[in-house]
Design a protein around this nucleic acid. Structure first.
Lengths: 337, 337
DNA sequence: ATGAAAGCGCTAACAA
DNA sequence: TTGTTAGCGCTTTCAT
């Protein structure tokens, strides 16, 4: 039995005794085609296992029907460590894209390269970009906005410029983490943040303060330190915190990876988690769940975030509608607090 | 200042006072073009920030210049848990591809779908596929081979059929893990494998036996159990092992994720790692390094693997040369053994 | 070494 | 509702 494979819509047209355009219309569910012809052609296409040629279609339509997922590339590390979060998001975006008929292209970006956007967009390889944590530096975003590049950001919107975003509810995240610590009887609750200038970090800190104030607690600046989301910075920031406040008995850490570092330092001091010091992380990555001492953390809904990033960027590309969505977070209680 | 942007090679041709073909040749470093014209055109292209249109080029050349990275898609989980390894590999492949002028497309595959290969290949979206763990079921591989689909596999070659592969040296991995355990004085060393029918697992087991035999040890079948790479299976397999051999004092586990599960079970029995039972994992994922009790493990060179997967698949596509490479592994000593 | 022209497979404006 | 035709922007014979 020979493989029933047909190469072009012209082949189908011949088999169906119609013109190329009719086939094109039928395959694209055009409204101005006869119900019956449409079905005949579609079943023919199915029977012959026909796949429409993407380059040709994209060339003709001046659209690639693919989105670029941007991440830093540096010697095999473009998807690691601090980027764990972005990595898990990739799966979500990819899943969100599928039902919409779009593809996902990996766009590795060199840290100081500013041409990548034009490179991928002008060459017609992608229609827009999904930016995740660590690629969303302020300067880069401003450039993208100025250049009119279609993109969506995992993060907060900016007051003065308008682009699509999806973010987590960081104020609530910071608040419920801290409330839980208060509720479980902790007296001196530290805040171990991500980079101090990031808006997310500010919101989480705000939530932290809110919880403390509602409980009538004093806000001690010595309880607040910052890191950069890395494992190492979790260690050093925890060290600093403990030096400033030796009687600390809990800490809310802005990422699971930093929390791992913090826990490591705490234990190296001979203190126990959670007995002596309770730790709450952020993100709920796999390594939080699988850590040998499973981490109590604030879960971000990563699959949903991916889905919305995909859907809303496509919507923006097609209609120009700018959306900004804020996703709920959730406390996951495990062993560290 | 207006943006100097030019859309097509025809625009460049006009500016350079040459024909489209000449521009095309110049941009592609064709040998039959004048050195001087080439440079003139290239600098013009640079100056005007010109990017060649990919769909047009791909259509004309009948090549997409992109590779598909295949992974299971199932409700946001296509890149998680058991797939951690594949996830880290994605970064390596992406980096390996860049210098070669190829792009990486994410190809999410539904577990029982068998049409994805044709779908992506016949539509001209990719020129070939990179298959990683969990997408490389025997049946699927055979189908791909029969259909003549270009792909490269992370895994071992098959004796009877010929396709490109990159794999780790699992025999050595199993051997050096076990040797280390022997060297550090362990008497009853267990083997907690991945799926029993996987060739990798057989090789690792072979290395385990080799080390034991070389040390003049008896091979006790009760010391050998199997899981499926999942965290849960690490827990249950460890339970079984401990029931069969209560005096066990070490275990070589076939993946870091399973090792995490095994450690969790061991500790839940009130035993200590590594004092009572030493654990060696496999892969050296980030969660092995960042685990709160950092895991002693066999490192696979993931960035190198990614680079070779990329390079060798492209070579195969372009020349038909089939390569099979076996990468060295390395023992990383941390806290669990 | 360069140009002219055909064609890659598709969509879409226009005609029928 | 369907067909005809003209591109989309590139590569590549075939001339020159």
């Amino acid at each position: 039995m020979m493989a029933k494979t047909v190469q072009t819509i012209e082949d189908i047209a011949r088999l169906a005794n119609v013109s190329k355009s009719t086939v094109s219309r039928a395959l694209n569910d055009s409204p101005l085609i006869n119900q019956e012809t449409r079905e005949r052609i579609q079943s023919l296409a199915r029977e012959y296992n026909f796949r429409i040629n993407a380059p040709a279609r994209n060339l003709s339509m001046r659209q690639s029907h693919t989105l670029g997922f941007v991440s830093y590339a540096c010697s095999g590390k473009n998807f690691s460590a601090e980027n764990m979060f972005g990595l898990e998001l990739l799966g979500g975006v990819s899943d969100g894209l599928r039902p919409l008929g779009y593809d996902l292209l990996v766009v590795p970006v060199e840290p100081h390269d500013t041409t990548w956007a034009h490179q991928y967009l002008n060459s017609g390889r992608v229609d827009g970009f999904v930016l995740t944590i660590s690629t969303r530096k302020q300067k880069m975003i401003n450039e993208l906005v100025n250049m009119g590049i279609p993109f969506i950001l995992w993060g907060f919107p900016q007051p003065n410029s308008s682009f699509c975003t999806v973010c987590g509810d960081d104020v609530t995240g910071g608040r419920i983490a801290t409330e839980y610590l208060i509720r479980t009887g902790r007296q001196h609750i530290g805040f171990l943040g991500g980079p101090m200038d990031e808006i997310e970090v500010k919101y989480r800190h705000h939530g932290y303060e809110l919880a403390l104030q509602n409980a009538g607690r004093y806000l001690d600046p010595d309880l607040v330190v910052y890191g950069d989301y890395s494992h190492t910075s979790g260690i050093t920031a925890m060290k600093r915190l403990l030096e400033q406040k030796p009687d600390l008995d809990a800490v809310f850490v802005n990422s699971d990876v930093m929390a791992l570092g913090a826990i490591q330092y705490i234990q190296s001091c001979g203190k126990r988690v959670p007995e002596d010091i309770a730790v709450v992380g952020y993100d709920d990555l796999l390594l939080a769940r699988y850590n040998n001492l499973p981490i109590t953390t604030i879960r971000q809904n990563i699959p949903l975030a991916g889905k919305l990033l995909a859907e809303n960027l496509i919507q923006y590309i097609q209609t120009g509608v700018v959306t900004n969505v804020n996703l709920p977070v959730e406390l996951v209680i495990r062993k560290t607090a």
